[in-house]
Every structure is written in C-alpha cells, then in structure tokens.
Design a protein around this nucleic acid. Structure first.
Lengths: 230, 230
DNA sequence: CGCGAGCTTGACGTTGTTCAACTAGAGTGG
DNA sequence: CCACTCTAGTTGAACAACGTCAAGCTCGCG
C-alpha cells in the first residue's frame, strides 16, 4: 500500500485549488495532519465498500476510479491527474467508499483525515462552497457518463473516451497510452475485444493512428461527430 | 406552467427536513421569498439545458427527473415524492439544469431562489452540511444507477425498478401504477416493448400480478434475486 | 530460449431493439 | 348513440449490435 513521503502543503505545486481558500492557520492544520503516500501502478488506494476516513489528493501520477461489479467488468468513470482529489460522496452518507481507486501510473497522493476536512468546512465558508462546487461537478460528470453509456453505441463511446484522454488526461492530440486495452474498454463500457475492434476500425478509417500504445488523433472533427451521433 | 398557491413554511407538513436546521428568522426569510406552484401531470417543472434559478421542493404529487437524449429514449434516474427536493448540481457548476423534471401526478412544489439558499448555507453551517449530505446521497444513487444500467440485463433492471417503486415511490408491495409503460421502460433503461415483455414474463412466472395498472409483488425474494443476479 | 501477460482476430450466439401490425379504451363530433 | 380518431398498450418476426469463446500472436523478461 505504498511508502511514506515528506511533503509540505504550503510549498506544494500540485495542491488542489480548494486549499487556496484556507488561511495559514488552517493550511498549517492540514499540513501537520496529512500523510503522503507513494503507490506503484496497480496498487489500490481505496476499495469499494470499505470505510472512508480520508480525502485523497493526487500530487503526481494517474489514478483510475471505477465501480466494481461481481462477475462482470469494472466501469471506470474517471481518471484523475494531480491537483485533483478523489471525491467521496459516501463520506457524507454512510462512511463507505462507493467505488474503488487504483494507481495506473506511479502515483503520489496526500491523505487528509475527513473529520478535519469537515471541521474546516464548518470554519471556512469559502472552503465549504468550493467543496460543494467540486462535488456538484462530479455529479454533473456522472450525468454525462450515464447519458453516454445508455445512449451511444460502442463507436460513440470509444470516440468519447479518446477525446477525454486527449483533452483531460494526456492533454495532447497525440499521446502514449499508459492504460491497457482492458482499461480503455472499462472506460467505454464495453469488452476488451470490442474496444480493440473499434480502435482498429478508427485506424482503418484514418481517424486515429495507433502503434502499440502510441495514439494520435488524425481527424478530430470526425471523432467529435462520431461521439455526438454514434 | 402551473398556478400560484398560498402556503406557509412554518406550518408546512411536507417540508424537506433540511429546513429543520434553520432558525425562525432564516425560515421567515425563505417563507417570504418562496413561490408555490401547482402542476398538472405532464407539465414541465424545468427543462434540461435551461438556466437554474430555483431550488424546487415537492410538497405533493410525484415528479420524474430524467436525462434527455436526442433521437433516443429518456432515462429516468429518479422519482421524487413530497418532502424531497430536486437537487441541482448544475447550480454550483454552470448554472444550467443537467436534467429535466416533469410532473407525473398532480403536483405542488415550492420554488426557492438559489441565491437565498446559498446565502443561508453561508450563514448556517448545519444547513450547508445537510445540503452537502443530500447532494452526496444523490451522487451515491447515481453510482448505483450506472452500476445497474451497465451490469444487469433487462430482467434485473426491471426487477430493480419494481422494487424501487414498491419501496420508495408507492410504499407498498401492491400499488396502482401512476406511470406509463414507457416511463417504466425509461426507468429501466430499455424500450417500451422490452419492458412489456419482461413484465409479462414476471407475470407468467407469478413473481408479480399485473392487471392494467395494478401491480402486486407476489414473490419478493425472487424479485430480489433477479435484481441481484440478472 | 521459453514463458506468460496482454493483445488481436475470427466464428458464433445471445440479447434486446426495431418495425409493423393489431387491440383496447377514452374522448369527440355528428 | 354510434362511428371516428387518438393514444397507450401488446405481440410477433426479423435483425443488428455486441458479447463470448477459443485460438493464435507479440513482446518483454527471467
């Protein structure tokens, strides 16, 4: 489950922007309390169903958040990069995690005790409303995800995934995939085999190029059109 | 879009419990400001994509919340009964509604200006945290919905819908459906035809009885098993 | 060199949708 | 009071989308 690291919240360059609302005393509070952890690819950060105690902020690497199913594929609903944290709606409902989080790349994360976060929300209205804003954003993203999964066919779903990777994960039209074909499938709500077939189709139609794990978007507008209509 | 009604927040029996955290002055504030509206079945309360100004509390009737799709079926993710309000994650993100809400039965609802709600959250920590709790609950429910829609086959999804109706909407194992077959389908993420076929199968297997719109659960444990495994 | 994990491909089967036709009941106007 | 229409519900047959299964491939690593 990863090893401990020394870090400092004040100087932290990969700090979530919600902490900008805290004053020095409050920042000091979480700085003293936090724990910074290193995870290897594949290591579990937290597991669906377990009690949730900590707010997790990603400071480097890449994390997948996914809903686990018995006898069925996982569904990845989000990939998280540094300066973002893993939202835990369960913390305010039943103190359980409703999804699992696993490091995809080498990852470092800071863990903050949820009680202290709650305390800070009570003490600092800006912090609380920033928190609510983030939580709301997650919900909006879930609406979008539900919408895509139920409405679109596999081509549209994969197009959505590729656009998401380019715009929000790798921040480039060309990128080296650090996720597996299975994870591409889990992001798109299909089987690994279907994912591979769809990627091949996109490649044959010169919408993308794909060599091993190097993927480049060749025809962005076509991809957007497939995402919208397919 | 419904007609105006006179009501009083202090004496209100179908008041959402989040308002219990308000003191008299604060309650007075929202009482003065609120607008109470009557909606006929089928009338739109708010529409996906429009700006959101108001928090909507249902005081009587039944409302469906659904995601709209172009050229495709709607997806109902929630039915709301009195004492609950329609959560609007968009209010804290882009000031837009990310789903539509329509009265299913004759419905009355109170509308509160969202700015005043935000102001009260800033003034009253308990109110704010109660609000966050409700918002988190909605997110958890969305996780559950995504999970069911992607994991289960139509039988499992319909079983889930029937159990949901019995436990959370009509509060009885036997009930008169006030929603259409199409709406049953939209709740279960399938076509109307499939919904009808599944219901027929359940009826033939004596898991439910169904005469017109009168539905009774005959074999609850079987339904739960189908929900879990199918 | 050989092993194993992840990737790829093809053949086949199942699930659930689509389309079209038919039925029943409620509301309307002659 | 009876056609007429309109909508919701129902049913069957054909079809498409996608998953399953099984086999083979590739590449990195011991």
């Amino acid at each position: 489950m990863g090893k401990l690291l020394k870090t400092n919240c004040f100087a932290c360059r990969s700090r979530s922007d919600i902490f900008n609302t805290l004053n020095d005393d409050q920042l000091q509070r979480i700085d003293c309390e936090k724990v910074s952890i290193y995870y290897k690819p594949g290591e579990v950060i937290f597991k669906q169903g377990t009690p949730c105690h900590s707010l997790v902020c990603i400071t480097s690497g890449l994390v997948k958040s996914y809903i686990e199913h018995e006898n069925s594929n996982d569904l990845i609903f989000s990939l998280t990069r540094p300066s973002n944290y893993l939202l835990m709606p369960g913390a305010f409902v039943d103190q359980r995690h409703h999804y699992s989080a696993v490091a995809v790349e080498e990852t470092t994360a800071c863990l903050f005790n949820i009680d202290i976060i709650v305390e800070l929300m009570k003490a600092n209205v800006s912090f609380a409303s920033e928190f609510l804003r983030k939580a709301s954003l997650q919900t909006v993203n879930l609406f979008h995800k539900i919408s895509g999964l139920t409405q679109k066919h596999i081509y549209g779903r994969m197009a959505d995934t590729i656009l998401y990777l380019a715009s929000s994960v790798y921040n480039n039209k060309a990128f080296e995939l650090t996720i597996s074909r299975q994870e591409l499938a889990d992001l798109s709500g299909m089987t690994k085999e279907s994912a591979i077939r769809v990627l091949k189709k996109f490649k044959d139609e010169e919408i993308i190029s794909l060599n091993g794990n190097y993927l480049e978007i060749l025809n962005q507008s076509m991809l957007e059109s497939i995402n919208k209509n397919g």
